[in-house]
Simulated assay, not measured.
Amino acid sequence: MRFPTEPKRTRILYLARFAPDEPVLAQKPDTHAAGYSQYHFNLFTELQGIGYDVRSSSKPYAAWMAGGNVDFVFSLLNRMPMRNPEIHVPSVCEYQHLPHLGAPPNIRALAEDKFLSKLAFRALGLPVAEGRAYAPGQELTPPDFTGPYFVKDRFGAASEGIAADSLQDSWQGTIPVIQRFHAQGREALVERYCPGVDVTVPVIGHAPYLVLGHVAPQSDEVGGILTESLKVDDHLGNRLVSLDAATAAAVEEDVATLWRNLGPIDYFRVDYRWNPATGTRTVLEINICCYFGRHGALALAGSQWGFSRRDLLAHVVEYSLARQHTTHSHYRWMI
């Protein structure tokens, strides 16, 4: 694990929707979803607790003024009223040659597009669920695979828009769910439903990377799906699971394949559906800059190694700084 030797010398700009805005560095009221304000404030104080010199803002334009004033941008500001908002801050940082959390913008863009990433994963030989994207205004003809069907936001995060009716046995039942997404201005992704349970695999960049473990988010919904209400309330939490030896080895190879082709990445999760009865695994998506809460999959899996949330946070920052140390050295400004 990497730990800072002189953290006070590292100036961090912390960005998040509920990040404290200077000069009032206090927790904000929660006006969105339960727990987000507390979560964002806790990460701010955790970074301070490590010893970093932390500035904080909830405003995306703070990234534009960061060049020359900070050494690193730790951004969780992923939900903004624009298409693909996850790419905004990394792109601004790249423009300023400023190290930032996560991965390069092109890799972030691929990960956030759950349809294009599915095509990329298939090309890399990973097992993925059949899927088809439907944009607003597109004719809703059936996909070339049979149901049951599962409908989600093509660019969604935290299971946004997923409800109990996202799981449908028939195409006729699927159409109104797609239309609901379209009415919200969202593109829908229809996948073939995979029986089993959700398993997520947290990974941190290391030497070259470290798979922390296998975690199952719990669900009491029909089909074991993870809905938006479950993610917001999270009353069931996560638990560590043991995969059969063959599946565990296959997951290790999946991560190695992703790392060779998409890495290095500071930290991420690979989300699966896994059928314990058959050992079948299906890659759903990769999540970069995923949830860093004390009770989340990352912290839970890290605890097996004796890592606290603070340990993981410090390591990720230091790894990211080292990863990007010479990233921009070959660029020259052209006027």
Rank of each mutant, 00 (worst) to 15 (best):
P136K: 02
G161L: 02
L300H: 03
R79V: 10
P20L: 01
S308P: 06
D266E: 10
I162S: 02
V222R: 15
P217G: 10
W171R: 15
P176K: 03
S308I: 13
S117R: 04
A188E: 04
R239L: 07
L119D: 11
S117Q: 05
G296M: 09
A109P: 00
L262P: 00
D113W: 11
L312A: 07
D71C: 01
L243K: 00
T326D: 10
G279R: 02
G196W: 04
Y14R: 00
F292K: 01
P217K: 05
F44M: 00
Q48A: 06
L140Y: 01
D21C: 09
T280P: 06
V241W: 06
E191G: 04
T327I: 06
F145W: 11
Y291I: 08
N238R: 06
K152E: 11
I50P: 05
G302K: 03
T280Q: 15
A33R: 12
L284P: 01
N78Q: 11
A297R: 02
L116R: 08
F74M: 00
C290E: 07
I50M: 05
Y39R: 08
F41R: 00
D169R: 14
N69P: 06
E318W: 07
F74N: 00
T280S: 13
F72H: 03
I12T: 02
V197S: 09
V70D: 00
N69C: 10
A26H: 14
N287Y: 07
G67D: 09
I162Q: 01
A188Y: 10
E22T: 14
C290K: 07
K118R: 13
T5R: 15
H235Q: 12
L321R: 12
G263H: 06
L119E: 15
N275T: 07
V211A: 11
G68K: 03
Y61M: 15
Y272C: 12
D266C: 07
A158G: 12
E253I: 12
K8V: 10
G263I: 01
V197E: 11
Y319V: 03
P20S: 06
W171Q: 13
P208C: 00
F292I: 01
Q172F: 08
I286H: 02
G223N: 13
I162W: 01
Q218Y: 05
F292A: 08
W305C: 02
S166C: 09
P276W: 05
G293F: 13
G147W: 02
H40P: 03
M65T: 13
E221N: 09
R9D: 11
F44T: 00
K8M: 10
L243M: 02
Y61H: 15
Y331G: 10
V199T: 08
L15K: 03
I225R: 07
A123Q: 14
G306I: 10
